[in-house]
Design a protein around this nucleic acid. Structure first.
Lengths: 147, 147
DNA sequence: TGCAAATGGTTTACAATGTTAACTATTAAT
DNA sequence: ATTAATAGTTAACATTGTAAACCATTTGCA
């Protein structure tokens, strides 16, 4: 019926996701980081201050992965951990000047890759895609939680 | 403009792909394999005989990864390597009886997960999705090749 | 015919990622 | 005051992506 996607819908989606990240990396290869760009965007969008736990939630992942992300970004000088005074278990993540300098190009790269990926699609198709992705996401997560 | 997907289109696609595979694995967890299902489907669709190189091409991957796939599937007793007489460099991959028994449920699982993932979408939306995915794929691969 | 290049497959190595468990320090609850 | 929960870290292990080096075999061609 739908030969292109009937069997490998999952594969296809993963493939597209990976290809997208490849392009993003290529576009940003003048930076000294090659991943975790979106984490930086999220920290910025939280006024440049967020705890690791909060970051884990918005990134849809767990605290162990976040430790790796933050280790990487702080080694590279994009982020600093600062212990919070009101709850000394928590670390505030704050963006360095280096990160603030890089963020505009990072966000530009996101838009540009989106433009490339969606090139040739009509406006209505892009809106459809947004809806469809949202639907797929809820279908899949609902079912995962009910396992 | 499209807040849901504007930044994290790549992430979203990867996320959906992973979720899909999670569901597939859960549906097939009574089998003693937890991956490479689609390789089996492809071998079957090539009349149960295909070389590793050919499998690499249809799976869009490289021969090193295929060695791992075939090692796994043959350890588990789903596939056998048979050296070809006309070209002794090549290995024919052939499905065992065990694989032939399992394949119907594997293909059912694919359809069922597709049904779950696409649940609530109109027929026209599914067709749109197919087209859009195809377009995304060509946009992304074209650009990757031109790096 | 004979030799170089190409092909099919394997092995090894390393980095990235996903996942789980166990651990420390701190705070909250009773 | 003690116990339970939370934030973060460390360690371990399997999977996956990627590249390089290697063997055996076949092909191309001088």
């Amino acid at each position: 019926m739908h030969p292109t996607i009937d069997q490998p819908l999952g594969r296809m989606l993963s493939f597209l996701g990976k290809g997208y990240l490849h392009l993003l990396r290529a576009k940003l290869n003048h930076l000294d980081i090659d991943r975790n760009y979106y984490a930086l965007v999220l920290i910025e969008s939280h006024d440049g201050i967020i705890t690791q736990q909060e970051l884990a939630i918005v990134l849809d992942t767990d605290k162990v992965s976040i430790v790796r992300v933050v280790d990487y970004l702080s080694e590279k000088g994009y982020v600093q951990r600062v212990r919070k005074t009101d709850d000394r278990r928590k670390h505030s993540l704050i963006l360095t000047e280096k990160a603030k300098m890089a963020l505009p190009e990072i966000k530009d790269a996101f838009s540009e890759i989106n433009k490339i990926a969606l090139h040739g699609l009509k406006h209505s198709q892009i809106e459809e895609l947004t809806e469809t992705i949202t639907k797929l996401k809820s279908n899949i997560t609902e079912n995962i939680h009910s396992i």
